[in-house]
Design a protein around this nucleic acid. Structure first.
Length: 567
RNA sequence: UGGGGAGUGGUGCAACUGGUAGCACAACGGCCUUUGGAGCCGUAUGUUCCAGGUUCGAGUCCUGGCUCCCCAGCCA
């Protein structure tokens, strides 16, 4: 994932950075950051941003900061800080100890606010929020100036001091920048810099009762940290002139100007068959459509991790999707392909039967057990092999038998011979039914000469199926996941519709009596395997030797399923 | 009758900055195979939003349209 090709084309942000490097704009420095608000869990869209920022710094010998934008105590919690730190770390983005909080800069910001008041560039406004909103005007209509706009510097200073001292209730007053109520850019119509919030903060406790607004704070945070390239999403493009105004205003008349970062906006990631907004993710959790933030169906980093995705796969994915300014939606199949590619290389193979069908080998000695050798990973000889117990009674996948085989069905059916992976050729002699007519057992014969899976007489079979020895197998729970939403774009509902309506009722299927080869009982949470012919699976947090639990990360490509779907 | 962005095969991105469109995913077909996996080979899909213009030559430049996204939180 490093410098693969000598001429990999650069995305537009890399081009800007390289040009800045060429022209010496920042004395050869590259310093980026990821600035999350701790009010929710990170999702794969954030991963795109994290990896973009960190990758830029890493590739250019620069630095990458992790900074929490904790300017609104009403919504923020320590739980989110902890989860975000864990997630960024897991993704592999290294902030090398530069973990910061906007709240660490509150004093400095406040000082600069006072300077703006002294310069006549900010004022205390007594308007209610409704009034402010009403007077802001509209996109095609200018706003009206606040009657408090021209208070004296002294009065503003005094009022602001008293705001900070806690003399006024929430919402009573704000500090506003004095810019231009007629600006075509709404962000410049005297934006609010501070609001009164008598709410304790998760880090500063009750030290403050006024909190800076994001627009006032954010650019200053980047400035303080010496961020060279402030990378953010498209919706902040409109805010850039305001950030520039703030820094210019602070720098006016200042002998030693504060640092002025360069902001670059890119399109956030959207994925098919899921939702990405924090609000909706929160609703999925609160309304119990999923089991939590780390539900393996969630696009959260925690969810992807629990499901069994690898950081390597996510990094590759973010590499592949690129960075641009056009809004777009990436097919989730792209992510699935990345995990498959990664796990195909690394995941040890095991045999597991999800929907067991009992098979009795009528000519196999009763009570006999032998250990067969199974290859751990055909992609990697170094992975070696393992013994797998074989005996007279086995389980195979119900799907691998058809009493009346459809065309092109190569697996087991009456009279047909197939190979049991790494074991023997077997031929189905008879299907046994219960009183209800349901097939409950297959009676087969095996060919002792085919031990290991090949026939001395050169005879071929069309299919190889997986199996597990009934008496040795461990019973397990396996959770199969499908897209959270049926619709590629859940938000694209017709008028009056709800985004929840395309929630996939079958996004989770729990199989209670899967049978696994015995070694799997010892798998620790987070261990990944390929269950041959089925897909990649990961031992869940809930797993235990007594009751193994596995999550299906992604299926293998299934050509047969495709054939069957078509007919 | 506001401002700011964006439009390239089904999808996501490229195109040495004017030389005639390429990669990945998806799709389809074949080869191979002790995973119908993996791998390999191949096929199809684009009037590069539209219309004009400049030029020997335009996805790239100019003009005029069209469509989509963002902005009226004391959210970030």
């Amino acid at each position: 994932m490093s410098s693969s090709g000598p001429k990999a084309s650069l995305n537009f942000i890399e081009e800007i950075v390289e040009e800045d490097l060429r022209t010496g704009r920042w004395d050869g420095r590259v310093h980026t950051r990821f600035p999350p608000e701790p009010n929710g869990y990170l999702h794969i869209g954030h991963a795109k941003s994290i990896l973009l920022n960190w990758g830029l710094a890493r590739r250019h010998g620069g630095q990458f900061n992790l900074r929490f934008d904790d300017t609104n105590p009403v919504k923020e919690e320590q739980e989110y800080v902890d989860s975000i730190i864990q997630d960024v770390q897991w993704l592999g983005a290294d902030w090398e100890g530069r973990l910061f909080f906007a709240s660490d800069y509150f004093d400095q910001m406040c000082q600069w606010a006072i300077e703006l008041i002294e310069k006549g560039k900010a004022y205390v406004c007594d308007l209610t929020s409704e009034q402010v909103s009403a007077m802001r005007g509209a996109p095609t209509r200018p706003g009206q100036e606040s009657p408090y706009r021209n208070r004296s510097v002294e009065e503003n200073l005094d009022l602001f001091r008293r705001m900070r001292a806690g003399e006024f209730p929430d919402g009573a007053r704000t500090l506003r920048a004095k810019i231009d109520m007629a600006s075509p850019n709404l962000n410049l119509r005297d934006p609010i810099m501070y609001r009164i919030l008598h709410t304790p903060h998760h880090r500063t406790g009750d030290r403050w009762c006024i909190y800076p607004m994001y627009d006032w704070a954010h650019g200053l945070e980047d400035s303080i940290e010496g961020i060279t390239h402030s990378i953010c999403t498209l919706e902040f493009e409109n805010h850039r002139p305001l950030y520039d105004w703030f820094i210019d205003a602070i720098n006016e008349g200042r002998p030693e100007p504060i640092h002025h970062p360069r902001q670059i906006e890119f399109a956030r990631l959207a994925l098919t068959h899921t939702v990405m907004s924090k609000r909706r993710l929160l609703e999925l959790v609160r309304e119990h459509h999923v089991r939590g933030w780390d539900d393996p169906r969630m696009p959260t980093i925690a969810g992807l991790r629990r499901r069994g995705h690898t950081p390597e796969a996510i990094r590759e994915f973010c590499q592949r999707i690129g960075v641009a300014k056009a809004n777009s939606t990436v097919d989730i199949a792209q992510l699935e392909d990345c995990v498959r590619e990664d796990l195909n290389r690394r995941a040890p193979r095991r045999m597991a039967v999800l929907r067991p069908l009992r098979v009795v080998l009528t000519n196999y000695p009763e009570g006999q057990t032998e250990q067969l050798e199974a290859v751990n990973n055909p992609e990697n000889p170094d992975a070696g092999s393992r013994p797998v117990p074989f005996s007279r009674v086995l389980y195979i996948e119900r799907d691998d038998f058809r009493e009346v085989p459809p065309p092109k069905f190569h697996r087991l059916s009456p009279g047909k011979e197939v190979r049991l992976r790494c074991a023997y050729f077997v031929t189905c002699q008879e299907a046994v039914r219960d009183a209800a007519g349901e097939i409950i057992e297959l009676r087969c014969t095996y060919d002792p000469a085919t031990r290991g899976g090949s026939a001395p007489d050169g005879r071929k079979v069309k299919a190889t199926i997986h199996w597990v020895s009934a008496e040795h197998a461990v019973q397990a729970e396996v959770r199969l996941f499908d897209h959270l939403f049926r619709a590629a774009d859940p938000s694209g509902v017709p008028e009056g519709g709800d985004w929840r309506q395309s929630l996939n009722p079958h996004s989770l299927e729990t199989i209670g009596d899967a049978r696994l080869e015995p070694g799997l009982a010892a798998a620790g949470a987070g261990e990944r395997f390929q269950f041959e012919r089925l897909g990649y699976f990961c031992a869940d947090l809930d797993t235990s030797p007594q009751r193994p639990v596995f999550n299906r990360i992604v299926t293998l490509r299934d050509t047969w399923a495709k054939i069957e779907r078509r007919s």
